[in-house]
Nucleic acid binder design. Structure first.
Lengths: 222, 222, 222, 222
DNA sequence: TATGAATGAGGATTCATTCAT
DNA sequence: TATGAATGAATCCTCATTCAT
């Protein structure tokens, strides 16, 4: 009954996965456009070109589908972050930010869906996106040799995340006010400022190395 | 809804206003707790202790009531901002931020309602809160003698607004990580950084005076 | 808002009660005809000539309406039992049985609804009817000066209840095999047999007086 | 469903029968627990550990499966009755009753399923159980040399069946109020009473021999 | 024989809204 | 001004059933 085999997927299974993916995509599309309750399962099924019952077959409930869609979007974003890399820490952080905005601009649908999940709707959806944000910040801390457990520092970094999100929204609204590379540089400065501030609030925080790395004129000691 | 009446209110009018206010308060309370569609008019009427039909009598529709509640909340926040004042520009900006967080912490219900309206729900609700944010930023620009029409500057300032909102959310979640006065100082530094960044992106921007005023060591020239 | 007043019902209230009663009657009618799940709320609303939402307004849920209908039916049956009376205990028991069958034959709809609730559906529905049965048996015990707490006796009396219910069903199916008065006499004999049997099983049970009363040749000592 | 096969069953046939039997057992189990509509085919398939489509393959429809399960249960009960035997008629009736209660107590699941089918659900299900009851009564009539066509007698005997069913229910609820053998004796007395009553209502009925046989002090004349 | 993907009708329930009183 | 009875559209979800594999 179960066939935990590895690859030899039958045609039907492949077909099924394709269908599920189509439903998921339709859901992401629609949930991005309007708030949770304004999207009906019937609309999703119609958009996916399947019977009204199918989404339930695959995702159990509307909420399940919503969460799956969010999860999917979050994973894609996380993948985009993960793909960014560079030789120097400063360049890697820059690459991560660039990848972030690239993704958001190129997938405005997912972007809005994720950002909308931000405060509204249910905590679970928020948690899904929040994990990605935390991973992002944790990696930045790692690159800059900062203590990712310091609460004041994290407070400031999450505040900066708010700035990043707001910037994303603005870019989606009016794409040509500021170019992506320029915005990335700007946020790098804001990041430095956030770190400096955190250091003044929490005297035990070691930030000089991080700031040097951010300036780009520090020897690697990773 | 409007109360432009002058003096001689009949008792019924007073009574009516009281009732309407009760409905509005109940609505604000409930809309803060869960998203728009999860709040029923029946629940609002119950909370307000009136018949199900009454909210319609006063506010026409659910949407009307929602917008009225948002409007009310936004006005209260704007009033809190307006009440902040000080001799020096730097101190006034500081006072404004302090008043902002004070309000948010003291009225978490309204705070969340406003913030939730952020991306979700409908554009009208977003617009209501956005106006308050713009007014806030415009006043800051005025105090610091910055050009409130410069698009790059505004982009950065709005990004900073994102940081402020995110900070608010964090304070409501865990109130004791950072004290309000300390947070205000931190955001003042972020503000300076945002302005500096804007200046590097837009060479025509005059920011030296603003930065001096922010440092506190500039002669008033308002 | 609440008007706990006694009688001065407004016309609207009377109208509302009438409507609710119409819904209840329609529900009883339909629930008698087929099992719970085979009756749709839409069908009930249609039968009652009201909007689909109204039954929910009054009874909250399908289950609520079902239970209310059962409760109503049970109360009517209990009233029918209560109305029966006579000078001698034997005649009163006879009158109760006669009233029981009279009611069932005259209201076959309610009868089947109650009997159907018997084993099927949910325990709550069963409990509703069971209470009436217990009251019936308790009164019989009172009349015959039997101990209504004796478990073996009650076991036998409830078994007799099964015989009564089965007889009811048979009468509804084929009304003319046995006349009501004749059936009542027959069951009186069965009752005597049940009591005698209980006495042989539980030596502590005092039944001679009860049997004498049932024979009709005992001096009243109530 | 039918297994009229003779000898050489292939392995696949055996396998198929096993699977069908597993489905049937799962169905009986679930239908006993809750009413017809509350049991889904999916639940049955899951319980049987097979695909959702398989029950349809074997039983055509939900109703078909339900009826097959009832049929199966009824046949098992009939078999239990059939297995009871004794030298004297009185003892054989006693053995039949004992076998009945034994079966019911040992297979409460089937018992409730059968009893539930009683009034509720559909007439077909009722008919299935009713046939067993009629067979039971017919055999009793045969043993006691009673006329199984006499309508009044049958009326009373079916009423007694109601008492038996009710007793079964009580035993399942509270097993230790009355022991099975004791209950059997009690019902034998009730049976005698029912026969006597039938004789008073239908003067043409010959019951003296039956009553003598029931007493146990009559010469066999089968 | 057996699977499980896919269908689509049907049903309970909610809720904004209206309106007679 | 205030009530709450009544409406009916909309929505989520369940489930028997089919069928390609």
């Amino acid at each position: 009954m179960t066939r935990s085999a590895e690859q030899p997927r039958t045609r039907r299974q492949v077909q099924a996965e394709t269908t599920a993916a189509r439903v998921l995509a339709a859901a992401a599309e629609l949930f991005a456009g309007r708030p949770y309750d304004a999207v009906s399962m019937a609309a999703i099924a119609d958009a996916a070109g399947c019977a009204h019952g199918l989404p339930f077959h695959y995702f159990g409930s509307k909420r399940g589908l919503y969460l799956a869609a969010m999860d999917n979007a979050a994973r894609e974003l996380a993948d985009a972050h993960a793909a960014a890399g560079a030789a120097a820490p400063r360049d890697e952080v820059r690459a991560m930010l660039a990848a972030h905005f690239d993704f958001m601009v190129r997938r405005p649908t997912l972007a809005v869906a994720l950002l909308r999940g931000g405060i509204g709707a249910d905590p679970d959806a928020w948690a899904i996106f929040d994990i990605v944000r935390r991973q992002f910040l944790a990696r930045v801390c790692g690159l800059l040799q900062l203590d990712a457990e310091a609460s004041v520092l994290m407070f400031m970094l999450r505040a900066l995340s708010g700035a990043i999100d707001e910037s994303t929204l603005q870019m989606l609204e009016a794409p040509h006010v500021v170019a992506v590379e320029v915005l990335v540089d700007a946020l790098l400065h804001m990041l430095a400022a956030a770190i400096e501030v955190a250091a003044t609030l929490d005297r035990g925080l070691a930030v000089t190395r991080a700031l040097a790395l951010l300036e780009g004129n520090a020897k690697e000691t990773r």
